[in-house]
Design a protein around this nucleic acid. Structure first.
Lengths: 279, 279
DNA sequence: TCTAGTCTATAGCTACAGGCTATGGGGGAA
DNA sequence: TTCCCCCATAGCCTGTAGCTATAGACTAGA
């Protein structure tokens, strides 16, 4: 018996006639007639006797009805759940990000996401790269957000945006131009180094070494995500030349794909990051 | 979700891959691929993540699998029962017949039926016409067997054969010819009357009255069903002219159609009666 | 690094379940 | 009788699901 045949049989048995069943299922009466006839033909015996143009259930139909009801109920429940999974916002998303995101970008993203999805719960952690990977592999979190994720077995990372490093200076330092700053222009200024911990620090370190730049204090080169919330407070950002790009990656586990809520939130982050970097 | 989609999802989830599921369900792999893709498209979200060419169940699939398993099990059970109802001989058939059948025909029919269907149970009763009708309407029996059933509301009768009345005589009475016997030929012989109870008696009575036949003792006119088991024991049967026919009817209830076993047995009776009357 | 084996996706085809409208016949009630 | 209700059939169309052949991605082993 196909599921449709079960539904039709159920409708006929409970409503008492094909005509009523057709109304119940919002289809035409001949359609019901054909499905029932087909079911009976495949079963090899009639489910209803046609007596004086009306239907009377056979003993076999009586026997089957209980079982059919069970199936029917369970399918109904299945459909309910399947639909809820699709449309509901109820659920929890566990996100971890490196500190740079934790300060400004991630809270902003979650707050604006919650505006449209009030029933979603979040669990946020600020971790470092290797801790994020570890948490993902242990299924302690669903989504990781980091710079320049290193490919790791069992994890999948997707670059959702690329940012650039910028030079930040106190507002009392004037680099003499509004255009991009060359390394040479700040070589003699006091420089605050970035920790070389993590991929981004390493990336920057090798960039600076390649440029033979001196280090001092007062001027710094940092990623634009970190730079953004601090700008305006006596601090000024400058584009850098030659430009140095980094990737913003969303990391997930191979063995435990993100839920629908998770995917939806990743899409949202993608949007927020795009806005963040272009404004 | 259609039932096929549920089956395919169940097979993929349990077997771990589309290829295995295809083997499990004895279909081709592309067929599985298409059904799954179709199901996901209709659900609105993926059930499996395709990671490095393999399938990994999403959290949604995990959630649905329990429910799908339930449905799957219940459908399996339903199919088992539906199949058993079709092919099994297990069950009880309750038959009632008028006395004429109870002597020879019905026991013969049941005995030969049991030869091919050992697991069927029978419950036999010998009742008169009105009692058969009453038992059918009260659902105390499934099938009634009678002569010339009178149409009754709530009951359905089908004529499975027609028999003829015959003249029976002691073998020491010679009617002088091998051909049909005319009423006039036996008008002067001692005649044993048939009870006018029931339709058959009434039928015969009016036949005799129409023929103005006298009654005596020693010669009788009875139905061929009753005549058959008694012939050979110093008794001889003669066809009668003009012929008088009666019907052999199977009666069932409108509100409770016979089961498959019942229908099968009715077919068997039809055969037995045909053989009975032509031999 | 190349190759063989495994798995999934796509294309193009066929079969049939299941939907529709229109229509006809049987039975019961006015 | 006539009307109404119910079921069955005919003819048509669409969508699900099956097939073969083949391509593309990844893994593992030589």
């Amino acid at each position: 018996m196909r599921l449709r045949q079960i539904e039709v049989f159920h409708a006929i048995y409970t409503s008492g006639s094909m005509t009523n069943a057709a109304r119940l299922l919002n289809v035409s009466q001949p359609s019901i007639s054909k499905v029932l006839a087909h079911a009976e033909q495949q079963l090899g015996y009639p489910l209803f006797d046609r007596v004086k143009g009306k239907l009377v259930a056979t003993p076999e139909a009586d026997r089957l009805f209980g079982l059919v009801s069970n199936v029917y109920d369970h399918v109904e429940q299945l459909r309910q759940v399947a639909e809820n999974l699709r449309s509901s916002d109820v659920g929890k998303v566990r996100v971890a990000a490196t500190p740079a995101f934790g300060v400004d970008l991630l809270p902003t993203a979650i707050s604006s996401y919650l505006a449209g999805h009030k029933d979603t719960e979040f669990e946020i952690e600020t971790l470092h790269h290797d801790e994020i990977n570890e948490a993902l592999l242990a299924s302690r979190i669903d989504i990781g957000l980091a710079f320049d994720a290193v490919p790791t077995p069992g994890l999948k990372s997707e670059t959702i945006a690329r940012g650039e490093f910028v030079v930040i200076t106190p507002t009392d330092i004037d680099l003499g131009s509004d255009g991009p700053v060359r390394i040479e222009d700040i070589a003699d200024l006091p420089f605050i180094g970035l920790s070389s911990r993590g991929p981004l620090g390493r990336l920057l370190t090798s960039y600076l070494e390649a440029a033979n730049a001196a280090r001092g204090s007062g001027v710094s080169i940092i990623d634009s995500v970190t730079a953004r919330p601090t700008s305006g407070e006596n601090i000024r950002c400058w584009p850098i030349d030659p430009p140095l790009q980094y990737a913003i990656d969303v990391i997930t586990s191979d063995s435990m794909p993100p839920s629908i809520l998770g995917k939806r939130f990743i899409e949202h982050i993608r949007q927020v990051v795009a806005d963040h970097l272009t404004s």
